[in-house]
Design a protein around this nucleic acid. Structure first.
Lengths: 185, 185
DNA sequence: ACCTGAACACCGTTCAAGT
DNA sequence: ACCTGAACACCGTTCAAGT
């Protein structure tokens, strides 16, 4: 049942990430959790950044899969996106944080995730439920809004005492409502 | 002309941050740039996080000031926000990244920055240029969208070959256009 | 009150060596 | 091909000591 060593190292690193952020992902602790020495990971990853990148790549693949399930509507996809981000803050920050490489597995996974959303937006447009226009650009706006809403919510930049309605979910819902209003009948 | 030591330490730290991110902000280098020993900063900041928080706090104050200038319209404020974020990526990520404290100077500075935008949104609504509704919530959506657009642009999650129009500025402009269309005449 | 130098524990990475 | 243990340079933080 145990996957190959590379996968088990990614598993261990992801769990450490969830608990304490990127700083808690030390190669010594990763090795200990996987039952190997502290520099055995260097046989599978170029360095620590490469290991973190492998986590992000896996998260993007899973995100694309979750987009595929459900009714295939943009609204549901973005809500799934928010649930994932708020449930796994560190994975979210890592996945959509800055990269280094150009044409890595990460870039391809990100492209696939976006493509699923773009198709859903295009369908919605044809049904007259969203404004016309380039679906790639509209999907980018949706992703940007959800990303920012989740980021600000996690950082405590949205909430203030007595304003529980300022949630990431509500902000994204507002955006969809505005888009619906902006769609000619 | 030299400010007090605390300010000069923040200056040095901010420059190191711009060059190499939070990891490049080592207390040894900060001390060296400020002409003191590597642990003199501990007389002015509780720890490294506290020093980074001081940078973020200062950036938020400056952002609120820049919001105050110009025509006082939300569209211009958000464009100023994007320019700052794209020009100083590391300060942007630090400022809107996760915090620890609750009621620190950082929280107050963030509140002030948001308040300026909220007032501008309320004015726009009264002029019939933006949809009615809670201006706090609409301002939060604007900030979230701009934040996410800048974040994805910086991370390379927006661009792809031959799609230079997928910029943070354009996405935010699209949002303002949708909001205008969604406003009854 | 503010600063210094030494010291501690920790980390990423490299390398010679093992199977 | 994959792993280990020692070693190196570096870092955040603490502490005894100075002015």
């Amino acid at each position: 049942m145990v996957a190959n060593r590379r996968d088990s190292l990614i598993d261990a690193a992801a769990q450490l990430l969830d608990r304490g952020g990127p700083a808690a992902v030390t190669l010594r602790e990763v090795g200990r959790a996987a039952g190997v020495s502290h520099n055995a990971p260097y046989r599978h990853f170029a360095d620590k950044s490469d290991l973190l990148e492998a986590i992000a790549s896996r998260e993007l693949e899973r995100l694309a899969d979750s987009f595929g399930k459900g009714g295939g509507r943009p609204r549901e996809m973005l809500q799934a996106y928010l649930q994932w981000a708020l449930l796994y803050p560190e994975r979210f920050r890592l996945t959509f944080g800055p990269w280094r490489g150009d044409e890595t597995a990460l870039g391809k996974a990100a492209f696939r995730t976006r493509a699923v959303l773009v198709e859903a937006v295009a369908r919605e447009q044809q049904e007259g439920a969203m404004p016309k226009g380039d679906p790639v650009r509209l999907a980018a706006l949706l992703l940007a809004s959800a990303n920012g809403a989740a980021s600000l919510a996690l950082a405590g930049h949205l909430g203030r005492p007595g304003r529980a309605d300022l949630s990431a979910e509500n902000l994204v819902a507002d955006l969809f409502d505005y888009l619906e209003t902006a769609t000619p009948a």
